[in-house]
Computed example of a mutant assay.
Amino acid sequence: MQILNAPSRQEIDRAHTWLQSLDIGIPSIRNLSHVSRLKSASWLTFLITSIPIHLLFNSSVFETTYDGSQWYLTFATEAFTQGAPFFPPGASLLLAGSLGPDIGIGVYGEIGGYGEKVSVDQYWNASSIIRQKIESVAKESHSWTILSAEQCYSEYVSCNPRGEYGDVIFIINSTASEEGWKRSDIFTFDPSTNLSASWNPHIPPNAVNSLWFSAQCNVGRTKSTSGRDDTCTNVCLGAMGFDRYKFRFNETLPMAYEPWLIPFFPAVRHRDKSLFGKGLEFNDKFDLLHVNHCLAKPVQPSCKVGLSNALLLIVIVSIFVKAIQGGVVAWKLPSTSLVTLGDAIESFILYPDTVTLGIGTLSIADAQRIEVSRNSLVAPRHDNIF
């Protein structure tokens, strides 16, 4: 571009005949009107094709980082991670998502904030995905990272993406025994109902259950039009003791109890025992769950190099056009350009210019003479007609 912008000796002489000066040794846009059309068009082509290369090439290749939104939540005793027996859906008899299946053996109606919906047959089917997930958590969780209750609270009662920790077990201090809970201690079924016949084959009334509750969770962020009122959705906030599962993105939810005690059952929180259903009595002392600590599964971030095909195509086309134009210039450039001051000095010493001859040291008188000569060239001609 600097060579194309520099005038040749012929172009300088032509400009001098019109008493116009040109710039030597610097990029100069004003030279474009005095150089050949090939040089000016080529200079503009190089300029236009350089813009995408400089602005888009770095943007066409980029890095992506992993920000997960899915994680699995489990409430259990320490014995759950050490091979103790468990009976899904857990000692709470609480189904994730929809808290009560259609077959009428659940405990509650449908309430948000308790994870994604799971039907009761998935808990009792040994080959179902949810049952296999619970079993894998029981086998693997003993090797997960230990988090304090405070660390666990700040990590999961939030809209944080799952970049460092994923699945988590809240280790609960059971008020019944260290191993877990008995269904008969927590719930009393009315003999006139079929609740016992429905639950006994899957959760025996006097068997110790090391599992309390589990659910598939996810977090999400909803953008607002203003950008200041973004909302966060955490579908497991209800299971962690909150009456809602949506909150403002930058909002910090205070811990209800310290140490961390989770009021788990919504019926007790709202003092509405009708949520427990007919034929069922609940022992209120099992509502508050004391979180001793957590076991969180470390996440292996999956970072990748991304590529924008559209931006890269624009860059490739620009480079292709630039390469072709460079070949055209090398083939068709009519004469040598005076790129530096040394080139101009050499040319004017060897071939003096008649217009500028004798004014190598330009004085004020010379400048005035050139200005007068220029004005006489461009001044309108007046002919006297008699």
Rank of each mutant, 00 (worst) to 15 (best):
Q2G: 04
I3G: 06
H16D: 11
D23C: 14
I24N: 03
I24H: 05
I29K: 00
R30C: 05
L32R: 05
R37K: 15
L38R: 12
A41D: 00
P52R: 00
I53R: 07
F57Y: 12
F57R: 06
S59K: 15
V61R: 13
V61L: 12
E63Y: 11
Y66E: 15
E78T: 14
A79G: 07
A79L: 08
F80N: 09
F87S: 07
A91G: 07
G97V: 15
G97I: 15
S98D: 13
S98W: 12
L99D: 12
D102M: 09
D102P: 04
I105L: 11
Y108R: 12
K117H: 08
V120G: 03
I134R: 03
A138Q: 15
K139V: 03
S143F: 00
T145K: 13
T145F: 02
S148K: 08
A149G: 04
Q151I: 04
G163C: 07
G166N: 00
I171M: 13
N173Q: 10
S174G: 04
S177D: 14
F189N: 00
T193M: 01
W199D: 05
H202A: 09
P204G: 02
N209F: 01
S210C: 10
V219G: 01
T222F: 15
D230H: 12
C232R: 12
N234D: 08
G241K: 07
R244E: 03
Y245E: 13
K246H: 13
F247R: 06
F249Y: 15
N250R: 05
P254V: 01
P254F: 02
W260S: 05
R269G: 05
L275N: 02
G277F: 08
K278C: 01
L280S: 05
N283Q: 10
H290C: 00
V291E: 05
L295S: 05
K297R: 14
K297D: 08
N309W: 14
L311S: 08
L313G: 15
V315Y: 02
S318C: 14
A323D: 06
I324R: 05
G326H: 09
W331E: 08
G342I: 00
S347Y: 04
I349H: 15
T354S: 13
V355N: 11
L357S: 12
L362Q: 10
I364M: 14
A365S: 10
L377Y: 03
A379N: 11
F386R: 12
